[in-house]
C-alpha cells in the first residue's frame, strides 16, 4: 500500500498524460482533442509539482526563525507550475477560439473532414 502511497502523484500524473494522449491520438472531435491537451497539461503540472517536493522539508517561507535555510524545498517548480497553469488557460482559450472559428468556417469539428490544408 505504501507503494501506491509513495507513487500516487506520479501514477496520477502519468495516468492523466496517458488519457490525454489517448484522446489526442484517437478522437477526431476538435473539442475533445483540446480537452485531451488540457489533460496532458494538468498531468504535466502535477508531475512537476510532485517532483519539486522533497519529503521532510518545508516550504521556503521564513515565517519563524526555526526554519533552517538548508531544509527548504526549491520554490522554482511551484512558481513555474503556477505560471504554466496560467499559460495553459490561455492556450485553452486560444485553442477553443480557434475551434470556434474552424467550426464557423467548416461547419464541422471533425478533424478528418476538415480538408482545407490537406492533399
Amino acid at each position: 500500500m505504501s507503494l501506491i502511497y509513495n507513487w500516487m502523484y506520479y501514477i496520477a500524473s502519468g495516468g492523466l498524460i496517458l488519457i490525454g494522449m489517448y484522446i489526442i491520438l484517437v478522437k477526431t472531435n476538435l473539442i475533445k482533442i483540446i480537452i485531451g491537451l488540457n489533460f496532458i497539461d494538468t498531468g504535466v503540472n502535477i508531475l512537476l509539482v510532485c517532483i519539486g517536493y522533497v519529503k521532510g522539508r518545508t516550504a521556503p517561507i521564513f515565517s519563524t526563525s526555526r526554519i533552517n535555510p538548508t531544509n527548504v524545498v526549491d520554490p522554482v517548480p511551484q512558481a513555474l507550475v503556477l505560471t504554466a497553469i496560467v499559460i495553459g488557460v490561455a492556450v485553452l482559450a486560444l485553442a477553443l477560439s480557434i475551434a470556434i472559428k474552424v467550426y464557423e468556417h467548416n461547419k464541422t469539428l471533425n478533424v478528418t473532414k476538415i480538408r482545407g490544408l490537406k492533399w
Binding site: I24, L25, K27, T28, I33, V111, K118
Partner: peptide, 13 residues
C-alpha cells in the same frame, strides 16, 4: 504529412 492532428501527435509521441 497526412494533415491529421492525430498522426502528428503520434509522431510527437
Amino acid at each position: 504529412y497526412t494533415g491529421n492532428i492525430n498522426t502528428y501527435a503520434l509522431y510527437i509521441l
